[in-house]
Amino acid sequence: MQMDWVFGLAGGLLIGLGGAVFLLANGKIMGASGIIGGLVDGSSRKNWQEPAAFLAGVVLLPILIFPLFSNVDTHITTNWAVLISAGLLVGVGTRIANGCTSGHGVCGMSRLAPRGFVATIAYIVAGGVGMYVFRHILGII
């Protein structure tokens, strides 16, 4: 759709605003994998209220604005083997690399962190190569 970039830019600004609030008010870097992973492996279990409240906001706000949009389709695959392998790769990979699109991408690159740029290039190249192999060679997605 031609208007997609407008929604992309507007949504991006909101994402950045969320990161700005989390940094300036709470003093934390808004990295989704770190916030989720810290609760999963117990490293943030002592002060669990802050990450838990953040995650609650991420889940709940889309419910509130969902009725404003029509035809929301996430086009997710129905192939469970693909979903499970992808989920495992994302879970393990983001924790080993200590960040994902929000932490390394949005928060890291905006403060010119070398690790943010290296990670972002690595996961975009891997995703692009993966897409070529999975879709155009193997035809599984």
Binding site: V82, S85, A86, L89, V90, G93, I96, A126, G130, F134
Partner: peptide
């Protein structure tokens, strides 16, 4: 880690 993440990101 980022390469693993990227592969999973592309898959799903």
């Amino acid at each position: 880690g980022s390469v693993m993440f990227g592969a999973g990101w592309g898959l799903a």
